[in-house]
Design a protein around this nucleic acid. Sequence first.
RNA 1: GGCCCCGUCGUCUAACCAGGUUAGGACACAGGCCUUUCAAGCCUGCAACACGGGUUCAAAUCCCGUCGGGGUCACCA
Length: 525
Amino acid sequence: MTVRTRFAPSPTGYLHIGGVRTALFCWLFARRHGGRFILRIDDTDQQRNVEAALAPILEGLKWLGIDWDEGPGAGGDYGPYYQSQRADLYQAAVDKLLASGHAYRDYARPEELQAEREAAEKARQQFVYSRRWMGETADDCRRFEAEGRQAVVRLKMPRQGKLVIGDLVRGDVEFDWAREQDHVIQRADGTCLYHLASVVDDHAMRISHVIRAEEHLSNTPRQMFIAQSLGYGLPAYAHLPFVAEPGSKVKLSKRKLDKYLKNRDFAQLLEHGQRIARAIGLAVQRDTFNPVIVDFYERVGYLPEAIINYLALLGWSLDDRTEHFRPEDLIASFSLDRVNKAPASFDPQKLTAFQERHMLGVPLDQQVEMVLPYLQKARLIAADAGGPVRQRVRQIVAAAADRIKVSGDVLDYADFFTADDKLEYDTQAFDKRLRKDPQAAKLLAKFRRRLAEADAFDAESLDRLMRQFVEAEQIKLGQIIHAVRVAVTGKAIGFGLFDALAILGKESCLARIDRALAMVDHRTD
RNA sequence: GGCCCCGUCGUCUAACCAGGUUAGGACACAGGCCUUUCAAGCCUGCAACACGGGUUCAAAUCCCGUCGGGGUCACCA
């Protein structure tokens, strides 16, 4: 049997991190077994703007490398892949269910049904629809319609016996038919509901394994009933645990951002992203830009394979030690029987750790390519920046090394691109390193003269130069190096100082030191 | 509330199915080393079988119960 899995998002305008995890597992399972991964759009409930609301989802999946064999933009033999375009199939299924007596037209008015529900609740009994307005015969239907009633179509569910779902993740799960309701499968206006559509499509698209989030587990009986009533063979089911909130077991939701922001790590993750986004002129409204949405990571400059790695381990593991996986490694080793049953909470710190680790493996030149767009969008370099600029970027990226955790972090080194007379100084650092110490300015001025005389301006020579200076002046390295750093980069922190000096070049270094010295004098006088 | 699912360090997890481990790893955290600040790296440390009964020579592991958490109960998907 060919493995065919599907991910069926509805066009909501964004790709949720939990949704992606589900998609990832479906995709991995299909790829692992040489099967097909199908993308189907559940837009039974949407009216307009499906394309606009779908684009971010498609782009997110593409960015992550989760490619689909059939679906929007990919074609396929079992299309169309939009549920809104498959109404005739659903109608045929409804007709068949009606004809075989597995479904009936129900003429109850909503308030009548509601009354029954409330009565049952009051009596502390489980609600079981009386089927009073069930139109079983043509006569019944005519009679109800004469009263001005409209019909929905309901499943005529079994009211006794049990069923067992042989779930690939959770094992056998038993349900009582008596607890099930006569679910609506077609509205009065003729449109069909999700469960019917889903079952019909899964069958029509030859889905072999229905892999989805746990919240669908209790929906499965009605879907099995539909499938069996239609004479379909059943797919295998696998219900994945959901992705939970940071530090909790509650399902992660886009709507509870305020709550997540109380989590320090989550807040930091967002803040870091916002800092980058602002620098490159992106809108950072929480609604559309936050760590629950996959877009966030793409914009800030995370690596798709890091996100994939992290997400895969959220609910799945290979063994007791392997943690670093490239997508192809995951494909080679993924299996449903090693999927965990318990929900896994989203941990921003661990995600970050995976990102750092994957970033470490990216070759320098590739990192430069990744980083350039950020410098361009921040207007630090021209869009058509030529060789010399790229060369400088390359030097910076090399010097910064693992300090660049995400591509956007390159903006921490914006000072290398600003004009010497526009450099902004961290006032705290400036005070500490240049004002508080009465010797600092004097030493800096002295060192400046040495710099001015220097022939070689590479990191190694500069290193030597400073050490000679320290020896000659009978001072400690710390007494001069920090002052120079602040004077030249404006900051107290950064990568190796000699790299910084070399990258800036003699002229810039001298100009910046002069400016810093002038600032010291100015304020001291 | 009914039904269903789940319960190992703060977090992700391994060991559970085929009982015997000082309950392992990773992230985080704490301390130390390195050092030119910040990172990184290295070393060390902290830290868990939800609880109670059984079965057994032996239980994180098998059985029962309790408690706790979650999901779901729509003419949403």
